[in-house]
Structures are given as structure tokens and as C-alpha cells.
Amino acid sequence: MRHLIDITDLSVEELDELLDLASDIAENPKKYQESCKHKKLASLFFEPSTRTRLSFEAAMFDLGGNVLTVSDANSSSASKGESVADTAKTVSCYADIIAMRHPKEGAPFVASKNASIPVINAGDGGHNHPTQTLTDLLTIKREKGRLDNLTVGFCGDLKFGRTVHSLIDALSRYTNIKFVLISPEELKLPSYVKKDVLAANNLEYVQTADLEEVIPQLDILYMTRVQRERFFNEEDYLRLKDSYILTPEKLKKAKEDLAILHPLPRVNEISVAIDEDPRACYFKQVLNGKFVRMALILTLLKEAGTL
């Protein structure tokens, strides 16, 4: 049984096929509107999530399928102490595919080992969130027409942001990607990511604290939120937070075809004035998230022999 637990479960060829299918769905949604008729997605969200859950559920509805939802762990058997393994076995009797978010890291992997239907990891703690990475990749591909020969800037909290780490990991498999890492000293990319991903693959990267200095060279700017709770010192937070707010002024020096991405939710790190700029892609990214989840559900159900 094929599952998606970690983005590296997919080869580059499989990734490309999935992104091509997602692009086709985006361009011809009617073609797929009955592809999953009479099929059921079990949406098992054991911790709060609005965006990802709605995206999965909208994806299944747009494929003509149905959705069974657990959106509150307190209303499920998990609150009675049922194991993830038993939940997966039970839900396999009702549904055709599972999307699982769980606060414990590795829970979707345990589910995949016990389910008789495909399991998609919809986020497990601070560990993996592969469909966010697929969303980011699809957005880059649709905006730039390619996933190679790009200069990609990551800005903000590069230390704790799991979306940043897994997107770097995924992009490192494509050729001629130059990484520009823009963050305050306190929130630099962890050394294990630099060592295990960037250095191990001989990838070019630069680190800087100055967004304005590097913005002219970027094809992609991936913004993240600088979170107050990450700082030990309120003074440091206040000193740094405004350096990473993207404003129309800072954007003046950027390329005309820059694509600005953000995993959302946004707080204040991208000025609302930028929303109207054609380079702002973060709401298109949300829509791409639905398309790529549709492609993933279709692909996994086909591989499982359900369709």
C-alpha cells in the first residue's frame, strides 16, 4: 500500500508526475469532478487546523467524493485511549483514504503501518508536513514554469520553520538551485540542515541578515513569520521583527517576475499593500494546496486499486 508520510517518499519523477497532474486539475477542474465518486476521505485531525483540513476536504469534494471528519480529538475514541494503530484499522473499514494530522511525531507513520488504505500525513507535530511542501513546489512550478535554475530566498524564522526545512530538502533534488538564507542571527537555518542537505549535496547558499541587499537577485521569496515566542529577550524581538516585514518599498528593488510565497497564516510580515502586487502568490498558493491534494488523493487511490 502506498502512503505519503514524508516528502522523500516520492522520487523526483513521481513528484514531477504529481505536480503535472495537479497543474492539469487546476486548468481543467471539470475533467476531474467525478473522479472519486462514491469514495470517502477520512479526515482525522487530532489537533486544530483550519487551512489544511479544509483544503483536504475541499479537494475530496471537488473530486466528487465524500468526507468523514474527526476534527476534535476530544470527540473521538482517541480521548478514550484508543491507539493510533487501532484507529487506523477501524477507519480502514469505513473510508478509502485517510488524511491524518496528529500532535505526536510519527503518528501518521504508525497509522500507515496498520491501515489497509492509503494514509496521507497532514502534519505530525513539528516533524513533517509533506502536502505543504507539495503546495510550495506546485506554486513555484506554476509561477516559474520550472523547478530548476532558480535563486530561492527564505526569509524570517529559518530555525524552527519546518516548512522551510522540507522545502529546502525537496528543492535540493533539482539542479542549479541557489539558496539565499535571510534571517537574524538567532533564527538562522540549523547547522544539521546545512550539513545534511546543503553541504551534502554541494549546493550553493549564502546567509545574510539583510533582505534589501539580496532581494534583487531572487526568483522566489519564501517569507515566514518571526515569532515573538522564539525569543528569550523581548528587546531582541522588537529590534528584529521589523527588518523582515516585506513592504512595497523593499519590493521596488526586486525582479518584475519575483514570486512571493508564504505558508500562512500571516501576521504582519507581509504588508497588506503587497496583496495587490502581481508578485504576491500566497493566496494562489492556498488554491494550489487544494489542487495538489486532489492530485495526491487521485494518485494514491489509483495505486491502491480503489479507482
Binding site: A85, H102, K104, G106
Partner: peptide, 11 residues
């Protein structure tokens, strides 16, 4: 890792 699934599922 206290966030690991093995921390709560003893079996």
C-alpha cells in the same frame, strides 16, 4: 523526544 508517538503509545 517527548513529542514522539512512542512517548504515549506504550505498545
Amino acid at each position: 523526544n517527548p513529542r514522539c508517538i512512542t512517548s504515549t503509545e506504550q505498545e
